[in-house]
Design a protein around this nucleic acid. Structure first.
Lengths: 144, 144
DNA sequence: GACAATTACATGTAATTGCATCTAACAATA
DNA sequence: TATTGTTAGATGCAATTACATGTAATTGTC
């Protein structure tokens, strides 16, 4: 009984494997350089690029597609490490801002070359420019 | 300083998000139908398709790209649930076979329509046939 | 065949995640 | 302004994952 297009099935299994493999390999490179997990970098770069160097937890959640509690605890750890700081939100007493600290910016800048090299090595170098453009487009379509 | 092709960077961020989002959504559908996590299904289908309905843990690891300890504990849980069974390996005293049980096969068959529908809904329906073929090829290239 | 090195798998412990639920602050309605 | 509903975020607890290490079997070397 064929309930599922074979291409779809192949995509589904490969997608999980590819993401898993890339994450493992890239993370290994980053850790080998003595840096924290790459998800920390994701948060830092998000904040660094946000206006005022800060964002609402809810925005982080939506950008990173993390569940609410995961964001809350990720921020805990970053705060613990002095890389971000929780600020009260003047316009909404329930909310807050997560602001990147100077040390946070410093770490983000320091991590960038290592992260970029790892991503290039394990991902970029495997595809031609045309393929990269194609893949990018297809992934964007899947996100919508 | 541009250390990284912008397409590569976009692929990297999207890939993680897409996989995360799809897994969450598909898993939610499967759980809503009262089934265990989809990774259980992955193991069961692997074993069901393997000769003799069994495979070495090492093979599972390589197929699913899981770390060794994850496989070991995943098998623990499946065994606990009576879906697989550990058998000693006659040719290698260190190793073992993980064999799917009749209940395991039954569950695998029962899960299939739900899994297929979820994957089709959240993944297949988002892309045309040509796009699926393209994406499949690109992902395969990344796995090598 | 003794011995070091490797391989297959398990497991203790600490960190992280998932789920459900909680609290505090808004918002809407009466 | 009391009441009810909703939203932003935190948190207790159980399940899972990561890391390091352990154990037993096997292989290679002499």
């Amino acid at each position: 009984m064929r309930l599922l297009c074979p291409h779809t099935e192949a995509i589904w299994t490969r997608l999980a494997r590819v993401e898993q493999a890339l994450l493992t390999r890239i993370e290994a490179d980053v850790k080998a350089a003595g840096f924290p997990p790459i998800v920390w970098y994701d948060v830092l770069i998000s904040l660094a690029n946000a206006p005022g160097g800060r964002a609402r937890p809810l925005d982080l959640e939506r950008t990173m597609l993390l569940p609410q509690y995961a964001t809350s605890r990720l921020v805990d750890r970053l705060e613990q490490a002095g890389l971000v700081e929780r600020q009260t939100c003047p316009t909404d007493g329930r909310g807050q801002f997560i602001a990147i600290t100077p040390e946070g910016r410093k770490l983000q800048k320091k991590m960038w070359p290592t992260c970029a090299a790892a991503i290039e090595r394990h991902l970029g170098s495997k595809l031609s420019v045309d393929e990269r453009i194609q893949l990018r487009g297809l992934l964007e379509k899947l996100l919508s």
